[in-house]
Amino acid sequence: MFNLENLFGKSTRGRRLKSADRVSGALPFITAGETDQGISAFIGNDVKVFSANTTTIDMFGSAKYRNFKYGGDDHIAVVHTNKLPKYASVFVTSAIHKSSYNGQFNYGRNFYAKDADALDISLPVKDGKPDYEIMETIISAIHKLVIKDVVLYVEKKKKELNKLTENANAVKC
Results as ranks from 00 to 15, higher is better:
M1F: 12
M1R: 05
F2D: 04
N3P: 03
L4G: 09
N6W: 15
G9V: 01
K10H: 07
S11E: 01
T12P: 01
K18M: 10
S19R: 06
S19W: 02
A20K: 14
D21Q: 11
R22S: 01
R22Y: 06
R22M: 11
V23F: 11
V23P: 06
V23T: 14
G25C: 13
G25E: 07
G25R: 11
A26Q: 10
A26C: 04
A26F: 13
L27S: 05
P28G: 03
F29R: 04
F29K: 05
F29V: 03
T31M: 04
G33Q: 05
G33S: 05
E34N: 13
D36N: 14
G38W: 11
I39C: 09
A41F: 13
G44Q: 10
G44C: 05
N45W: 08
N45F: 10
V47W: 08
K48F: 14
V49D: 05
V49Q: 13
S51D: 10
T55F: 05
T56Y: 13
I57M: 03
M59W: 01
M59F: 00
M59A: 13
M59G: 07
F60K: 01
F60W: 13
A63P: 08
N67T: 01
N67Y: 14
F68N: 02
K69P: 06
K69W: 09
G71R: 07
G71P: 01
D73R: 07
D74A: 14
H75P: 05
I76A: 00
V78H: 09
V79K: 15
N82E: 11
K86V: 02
A88Q: 05
V90K: 14
F91E: 03
T93G: 02
T93W: 04
S94Q: 09
A95V: 04
A95L: 11
A95K: 08
I96Y: 05
H97A: 02
S99W: 06
S99Q: 12
S100V: 03
N102E: 02
Q104F: 10
N106R: 10
G108Y: 02
R109I: 12
R109S: 06
Y112L: 09
Y112H: 12
K114I: 05
D120Y: 07
D120I: 00
I121P: 04
S122K: 09
L123V: 09
P124H: 08
P124N: 09
K129L: 11
P130N: 12
P130I: 02
D131E: 04
E133G: 10
E133S: 12
E133V: 08
E133W: 08
I134T: 15
M135F: 04
M135L: 03
M135I: 00
M135D: 06
E136P: 02
I138P: 03
I138G: 04
S140D: 10
S140R: 07
A141G: 00
I142G: 07
V146K: 15
I147V: 10
I147E: 15
D149A: 10
D149C: 13
D149P: 11
V151K: 15
L152I: 10
Y153P: 04
Y153T: 14
V154N: 15
V154S: 11
V154Q: 15
K157Y: 09
E160A: 13
E160T: 09
N162M: 08
N162C: 08
K172L: 06
C173V: 12
